[in-house]
Simulated assay, not measured.
Amino acid sequence: MRKQIQHYALLFLLLLSGLGISRSANGQEIKGIVHELESSQRLRDVTVKNLRTNETTQTDTEGNFTVGGQINDLLTFTQPGYEIDTAFVYQEGIQRVYLIRDSKTITIDEVVISRLTDSRLAYEIEKAKTEGQVTEASQNRGGLRISLSRLFGRQSKMARNNLDLLLEEQHNRKVDRLFSAQAIRALVPLTDTEMALFREQFRPSLEFIETASPEDVRAYVLDSYSKFKSTK
Rank of each mutant, 00 (worst) to 15 (best):
E55F: 10
E55I: 12
E55N: 11
E55Q: 14
T56H: 03
T56R: 13
T57L: 03
T57Y: 02
T57F: 04
Q58M: 14
Q58K: 15
Q58T: 15
T59V: 09
T59Y: 03
T59K: 03
T59D: 06
T59N: 06
T59S: 14
T59A: 07
D60S: 10
D60E: 09
T61I: 11
T61K: 12
T61A: 14
T61H: 09
T61R: 13
E62S: 13
E62D: 12
E62V: 04
E62F: 11
E62I: 05
E62C: 01
E62A: 14
E62R: 12
G63K: 08
G63L: 10
G63F: 08
G63R: 09
N64A: 11
N64Q: 13
F65K: 04
F65M: 07
F65Q: 02
F65Y: 15
T66M: 10
T66R: 15
V67G: 03
V67S: 04
V67F: 05
G68C: 00
G68W: 00
G68L: 12
G69S: 10
G69C: 08
G69I: 06
G69P: 04
G69H: 06
G69K: 05
G69M: 08
Q70L: 07
I71Q: 10
I71L: 15
I71R: 14
I71K: 15
N72K: 11
N72R: 10
N72L: 12
N72D: 14
D73L: 10
D73T: 07
D73N: 15
D73K: 07
L74M: 14
L74S: 08
L74V: 15
L74T: 13
L75N: 02
L75W: 02
L75T: 01
L75M: 06
L75S: 02
T76P: 00
T76D: 10
F77G: 04
F77H: 04
F77P: 01
F77L: 14
F77E: 05
F77I: 09
T78E: 15
T78W: 00
T78M: 07
Q79D: 01
Q79F: 01
Q79T: 02
Q79N: 11
P80G: 09
P80V: 10
P80A: 11
P80C: 10
P80E: 13
G81E: 07
G81I: 07
G81A: 09
Y82M: 08
Y82K: 05
E83Y: 02
E83K: 13
E83P: 00
E83W: 02
E83M: 12
E83C: 03
I84H: 01
I84A: 09
I84C: 00
I84P: 01
I84E: 14
I84T: 14
D85G: 03
D85Y: 00
T86R: 13
T86H: 04
T86A: 15
T86W: 01
A87D: 06
A87W: 02
A87K: 12
A87T: 05
